[in-house]
């Protein structure tokens, strides 16, 4: 049993989901409040990584942060850091593919919240950040959790773009999906089965936990 791969998958999935939440929830709120026309345009842009083949996405990522790219070479010169062949590269790939799932789901949640709540908060002296935390997020809470669950599922399952940017390095970038692919490829059917089942159960467990959290109620930040 490749425990490294499971640990890595969860590590990559959770980190990428955390970034998706931090970036995606405010982004969703911003898009939800854009004027019609702009809103559709922004929604479509966010959707792009969802409809592109993972390999194309991996190619773009390599272009963007590869070691010869502007960003990549700057990072490497300054910090000796590189996304390529590193678990952070897998996080980057998983983040990019999971972000649209989170944004779309949460955006729909925000759009269904009556604007009057937000306006009431404004007349009561609250700024945008405060309204976001105390009104928008709690009132769209179920959508936020659903978005988190979807994003996590997508992040854990990410394969194509990860393989391109992070490669297949045992213990470093060989996630469960890649380990399963390799096991199938080399005819190690029973190992593939065990890996697939483990990944399914681990992901299912997390999704159930999220579902229970949603049932438990809405945060009442004030």
């Amino acid at each position: 049993m490749d425990w490294d791969a499971l640990r890595l998958s969860l590590q990559v999935g959770l980190t990428a989901t955390a970034f998706s939440v931090v970036v995606g929830v405010p982004l969703a709120w911003w898009i939800a409040r854009l004027r019609p026309g702009w809103r559709e345009t922004a929604s479509a842009l966010v959707l792009v990584p969802m409809v592109l083949p993972p390999t194309v996405l991996g190619y773009y990522l390599l272009q963007a942060v590869g070691r010869r790219s502007f960003i990549g070479s700057a990072l490497e010169d300054a910090f000796g850091f590189s996304f390529v062949f590193d678990w952070t590269g897998a996080v980057l790939a998983a983040f990019v593919v999971s972000l649209p799932f989170l944004v779309r789901t949460v955006q729909a949640g925000f759009e269904s919240v009556d604007r009057a709540y937000e306006e009431a908060a404004r007349t009561l002296g609250r700024g945008e950040l405060s309204i976001f935390m105390t009104v928008a997020v709690p009132l769209a809470w179920r959508s936020v959790l659903a978005g988190v669950a979807l994003a996590f599922g997508r992040a854990v399952g990410e394969f194509g773009a990860t393989l391109m940017i992070a490669g297949n390095v045992p213990g470093r970038t060989r996630t469960m999906s890649i380990a399963i692919y390799e096991a199938v490829q080399t005819g190690r059917a029973s190992e593939a089965q065990i890996l697939a089942l483990t990944l399914t159960l681990a992901t299912l467990g997390l999704l159930i936990a999220v579902g229970l959290a949603a049932r438990k109620g809405v945060p009442s930040w004030r």
């Binding site: 009556d114 009057a116 306006e119 404004r122 007349t123 009561l124 009104v135 009132l139 809470w141 009442s220």
Partner: peptide, 21 residues
């Protein structure tokens, strides 16, 4: 801006925050 006007507004359907006591 609205938040600095010190003007209280009672909305038609009240817009009470449903998640707060």
């Amino acid at each position: 801006p609205a938040r600095k006007r010190r003007v209280g507004l009672v909305f038609q359907e009240y817009a009470l925050f449903p998640h707060l006591s």
